[in-house]
């Protein structure tokens, strides 16, 4: 089935509709702890940079570019 799907480029599933729904719910549930981990990681990067706070006052950038 998967081979045929690859050949035709069209979607063909061997699961019943109810099985597809169950698979979707299972995968979405698995995402929850991964989401928590990823969001905390990204937030930690911002928090770490809190004390690296150069002032942005670039008056000379245009000269650098020319």
């Amino acid at each position: 089935m998967a081979k045929r799907a690859k050949e035709t480029g069209k979607a063909e599933s061997k699961l019943t509709d109810d099985e597809v729904v169950k698979l979707a719910l299972r995968e979405m549930k698995k995402a929850v702890p991964e989401i928590e981990k990823r969001v905390l990681e990204r937030d930690a990067l911002a928090a770490e940079s809190r004390f690296e706070a150069p002032k942005t006052a670039d008056i000379a950038a245009r000269k650098d570019d020319d």
């Binding site: 998967a2 979607a11 063909e12 979405m28």
Partner: peptide, 15 residues
């Protein structure tokens, strides 16, 4: 990423 798996394994969308 999880929904991509549902599309390929459940909906039969080619990888």
């Amino acid at each position: 990423h999880r929904l991509a798996r549902v599309l390929t394994q459940g909906f039969g969308v080619p990888e």
